[in-house]
Simulated scan of single mutants.
Amino acid sequence: MPETSRRHLLLGGAAVSAGALLTACTSNEPKAQDAAPAGSAAPAADDKPGTPVTIGFAGPQADHGWLNAINDNAERRAKKYSDVTLEITEGSNDTATQIGQVQTLINKKVDVLVILPADGKALTQIGLQAMKAGIPVINLDRIFASPQAYRCWIGGDNYGMGLNAGNFIGERLKDKPNATVVELAGMDSLELTKQRTQGFDDALKNYPNIRKVARQAADFTVESGQAKMAQLLQAQPKFDALWNHDDDQGVGALRAVAQAGRKDFLMVGGAGAKSAMDAIKADSSVLKATVLYPPTMAASAIDLARALGQKKGVGGMSELEIPASITLYSAVVTKENVDEYLPTGFS
């Protein structure tokens, strides 16, 4: 997941992707398709093909539910367009390998590149190289160190995730004296984890009756979620709410909660996994909400790349060019609205 900054253009709207805007990226706007598969963006469809565009896609290694959904969204979206050819690399979390893969795409002279870098800072030079070679880059989620390394950045709002999770919990506990909360964070070595925590802490400042009493960092895996949650439960025999940064590690966290027989608090997850949405809909566990970090951004990145290749702007906006940056909104999914967001849930 990404190392993003809050300096980007905020486009408020549901995390079913920037679909309403971006599927109209070109004048040959797609017509409606069948319902999208779970974990994918609102459907793009094809009417008249435009200028053929070859898009090079360098994505991550699919070793996490969210990352797998990123790759799936990109491939599915590209297949919707008869005028798009997708040159896709084998995903890698190794920076040297990914640099080599992007270099190959540059040598093939693709029209546009979509890159979710394993490490934004480490891959900045290859982004710069592509841009200097006249190949525009859509920087997906993990941001390059220089804005000159990409034409457009699109990604999620890590600070907004924490902020919205904190506000949801705050509203649920605002009338409870001396309420306490705990946090199951992601990897503390990642900037995104710090941003999610900062957003959460800033939201809690609006609720003086609520105090955060514990925090554990996990590793975005089921196993780490279970182990770290077990430690939290043992150290904190009573608290009122839990903010968990990631739904994959949340699977393990829920296992630890069930094993401990705890039902005395509410839990808010993060990212938008289908398993989390199913649990929210069933309303049979402590999980009451999840804050989205939509992998549908990869489908929107393909829309943007197609628009760039066809020299089009974004439908619904007056400008002739696509934006320089787009930050997706971190919607809160609850029992009341889960049916709306279920189609975007990823496995």
Score class of each variant (00 low, 15 high):
Glu3Pro: 03
Leu11Pro: 05
Val16Arg: 01
Leu21Trp: 05
Leu22Arg: 08
Thr26Met: 05
Lys31Leu: 14
Ser40Glu: 07
Lys48Ile: 13
Pro52Glu: 14
Gly56Ala: 12
Pro60Ser: 10
Gly65Lys: 04
Gly65Val: 10
Leu67Asn: 03
Asn68Gly: 12
Ala69Thr: 07
Tyr81Gly: 03
Val84Pro: 03
Val84Lys: 06
Leu86Phe: 08
Ala96Tyr: 06
Gln98Tyr: 00
Leu105Ala: 13
Ile106Asn: 11
Lys109Tyr: 04
Leu116Asp: 04
Ala118Gln: 03
Asp119Ile: 03
Gly120Leu: 05
Leu123Ser: 03
Thr124Trp: 02
Leu128Tyr: 00
Ala130Thr: 06
Ala133Gly: 11
Gly134Val: 12
Asn139Val: 08
Ala145Gln: 12
Gln148Tyr: 14
Tyr150Thr: 02
Trp153Asp: 03
Gly155Asp: 01
Asp157Tyr: 00
Tyr159Gln: 10
Phe168Tyr: 15
Ile169Phe: 05
Arg172Thr: 12
Arg172Cys: 03
Lys176Arg: 14
Thr180Ser: 14
Ala185Pro: 08
Phe200Lys: 07
Asp201Ser: 12
Asp201Lys: 11
Leu204His: 09
Leu204Arg: 10
Asn206Ile: 01
Val213Ala: 13
Ala214Pro: 06
Gln216Gly: 01
Ala218Leu: 06
Phe220Glu: 06
Thr221Tyr: 02
Val222Tyr: 06
Glu223Tyr: 00
Gly225Asp: 09
Gln231Phe: 12
Ala235Lys: 07
Trp243Pro: 05
Asn244Trp: 07
His245Pro: 01
Leu254Val: 10
Arg255Cys: 01
Ala256Trp: 01
Gly261Met: 09
Arg262Ala: 15
Phe265Gly: 02
Phe265Ser: 04
Leu266Phe: 11
Gly269Lys: 04
Gly272Val: 09
Ala282Leu: 11
Ser285Tyr: 13
Ala289Lys: 09
Thr296Met: 05
Arg306Leu: 15
Leu308Lys: 03
Val314Arg: 04
Gly316Ser: 06
Pro323Asp: 09
Ser325Arg: 05
Ala331Cys: 11
Thr334Leu: 08
Asn337Arg: 05
Asn337Gln: 12
Val338Gly: 10
Tyr341Leu: 08
Tyr341Lys: 01
Leu342Tyr: 14
